[in-house]
Nucleic acid binder design. Structure first.
Lengths: 139, 139
DNA sequence: CCAGCGACTTACTTACTTGCAAAGCAACCT
DNA sequence: AGGTTGCTTTGCAAGTAAGTAAGTCGCTGG
């Protein structure tokens, strides 16, 4: 149970963008400042573009820019852009009604944990992280 | 961010043990009833033995048995037996003081989530899951 | 004491994540 | 038009989780 590098990098990049005044950011800039492998970061940024969090443009003066205010981007948004819908556990057989479904007591435990986690992530915006302001909400 | 199969299997096995009256359980029994690959389960059970949750004995009449009451085994215990100490994210450079440490705003977010998660797991025992009783505590 | 049972161990696939490298493509500037 | 810039895509290598296969070791009942 771990936060993937991809998600960590995505949050790190968006937080960096939120902190700086610039309008447009290049991969090279972010990757150097945040110590993220360039080509790997490219794949991550692509996902954030596809999910509508960022827009991108090639060429000189090109780069990535925000599509909406960082205050309107929650960690849940970032999570889902990178990882898709959260699913803390896969049921035993994918795409099949699990044979053990009825006697499966622990499923509801993971469901609860997942719900708690999603609520937690949903209450924190990128802006909150950039301004170190998230504690007020989390507590 | 997902619960590993290993942890899921471990919880599933212990819950199964908690529900049944028997004193001793074989790999074959658990693996058949819970649909867990035998040889993979063997490795998981080994960890639970090494961490003192179960004891094991070979030969006829052998198998695994509980070392303490399932009410005294929390999900946190199981987690740590299988995965070791929880670490939701690895800092950028392992075993090195991170260069970005001071400007690293998101670390405390993950720290909070980790703390919440550990508290959640710590409050639920295997017995609670087996008796479908955990909601009372979680809410 | 020895054969069978069941835990334990090792080695080998398979798939996914992370990371690296290089090539392709679009916009812009001269 | 052509070259620079920066996004985009593809392929490959290493590491880890998950699963498979097959063998080793120790207890115990006949």
């Amino acid at each position: 149970m771990q936060v993937s590098k991809s998600l960590d990098y995505a949050v790190r990049s968006l937080t960096y963008i939120a902190k700086e005044d610039a309008k447009v950011f290049t991969i090279r800039d972010i990757s150097e400042k945040q110590h993220i492998p360039q080509n790997y970061l490219a794949k991550i940024m692509r996902k954030l573009v596809q999910k509508g969090l960022l827009s991108s443009s090639p060429g000189p003066e090109g780069g990535y820019s925000l599509r909406k205010s960082t205050g309107d981007i929650s960690l849940k948004d970032v999570y889902e852009a990178i990882e898709g819908d959260m699913q803390l556990i896969d049921c035993m057989e994918k795409n099949v009604v699990c044979e053990l479904f009825n006697s499966c007591s622990q499923r509801s435990v993971w469901d609860h944990l997942q719900l708690h986690t999603l609520n937690f992530l949903n209450d924190i915006s990128v802006e909150d992280i950039a301004s170190n302001n998230f504690r007020n909400k989390a507590e």
